[in-house]
Design a protein around this nucleic acid. Structure first.
Length: 362
DNA sequence: TGGTTGCTGCGTCACGGGGG
DNA sequence: CCCCCGTGACGCAGCAACCA
């Protein structure tokens, strides 16, 4: 069929180009249809749209305006320049960020692209200081999560990773040791056993600096203690909750092996460079047995997951948002194509009638 | 009114691709 | 090889509609 649709543009916004892809409710579409007869092909006429007529169509709950214009030669002309690009974009596997960015770049310069969210990063700085007091397990995947309130303010997430926390990493690694209560006079270079569930302190070479910058107390939280149940914890790990100098709380997973007497092996708490500031890692000393290796592996896995959890949560949100936009875009495109189809059918019908009438008169 | 069902959004994990 | 990012899949929770 030569009756091609000169789709120079499609469901792109109006010629002003100021519409954003996500705002599809009032998109103006122009359609080009080169009238060509289809010989004896059954058609089903559904509606008639005249050139220059604007018809409002509804698809998937969205109303949009389709504008059909006629050029000087009786052709229906669309003026949008990016139809092929859009078609290609929408036909391939959806990478929503990519798709929407391309759609945005093809349109008005004022369109906000999807980009790294600087505002979120800025907001993150307040996260570490506003951790809600409650913690609960999720029971999923055998892991645990520190859940947010049902509708937490975006700046009040109980996350212990990602956001920078004003800890002194170097000092934590070099000279801070886990010490039992009452061990303040002990040599900070020695390791002490601490009992599960008890509050311990972290000593630093410069206690004033430590206090002003971060840690004050640490609470070992184990099975049946505190708000976190060990059932949801990976084997051999526990959560260390510590309080910062400003009163906010942080949580750390720590691999532990608790003796029958309820004592926890001592671990050096440090902040590896690969972790976000504020995520401290406890390194057990002298791992030898396969079980310890497995525990170490589980610990590493948990740390990795913990490190990624916050970012991935945000990424999932963004991904869903882009996906919804993409679906909306597709729905709009479907509506436009349906409208084009109707227009072409009408065009074909009128041409047929014209042809038959001309043949009769001759 | 309480139970059921479907829908929707969220958090999380796994996985693959791309980049350093 | 490792890390980061994007996305599919899964389970869960909240909500509204429906029904006995």
């Amino acid at each position: 069929m030569d009756g091609s649709i000169d789709d120079k543009s499609e469901d792109s916004p109006s010629s002003s180009g100021s519409s954003q892809p996500q705002n599809l409710s009032t998109v103006v579409h122009t359609i080009t249809a080169v009238p060509t007869a289809i010989p004896n092909q059954p058609v089903q006429v559904q509606s008639v749209i005249q050139p220059t007529q604007q018809s409002v169509i509804q698809a998937a709950g969205q109303i949009q305006t389709v504008q059909v214009e006629e050029d000087g030669e009786g052709h229906l002309v669309r003026t949008d320049p990016d139809i092929e690009k859009r078609r290609e974009i929408l036909s391939r596997r959806p990478s929503y960020r990519k798709i929407l960015n391309e759609l945005s770049s093809a349109e008005a310069p004022g369109i906000a692209k999807i980009e790294e969210d600087k505002e979120e990063e800025a907001a993150i700085t307040s996260i570490q200081t506003t951790i809600p007091s409650y913690v609960q397990t999720s029971g999923q995947y055998g892991g645990y999560c520190i859940k947010e309130p049902t509708e937490p303010p975006s700046h009040q997430l109980p996350i212990i990773y990602g956001p920078p926390v004003p800890l002194p990493p170097a000092r934590m690694q070099d000279s801070s040791k886990v010490r039992g209560i009452g061990d303040a006079s002990q040599d900070s270079s020695s390791y002490k056993k601490v009992t599960a569930g008890q509050t311990i302190q972290i000593a630093a070479a410069n206690q004033n600096e430590l206090t002003t910058q971060g840690l004050q107390t640490i609470t070992m939280t184990n099975a049946g203690q505190g708000a976190v149940t060990a059932a949801a914890m990976p084997a051999g790990t526990t959560i260390v909750q510590y309080t910062q100098g400003d009163g906010s709380q942080q949580f750390v997973t720590v691999p532990v092996s608790i003796s029958p007497a309820g004592e926890v092996q001592a671990y050096q708490i440090r902040a590896p460079s690969s972790l976000p500031a504020g995520v401290v890692m406890a390194t057990p000393t002298g791992i030898t047995s396969p079980q310890q290796l497995a525990e170490e592996s589980a610990r590493k896995r948990e740390l990795r997951l913990m490190k990624n959890r916050y970012k991935n949560r945000e990424a999932a949100r963004e991904c869903r948002r882009r996906k919804k936009e993409y679906v909306k875009c597709l729905e709009t495109r479907v509506a436009v194509l349906e409208q084009q189809n109707k227009t072409l059918i009408e065009e074909l019908k009128s041409l047929k009638e014209l042809y038959c009438h001309k043949a009769e008169t001759e």
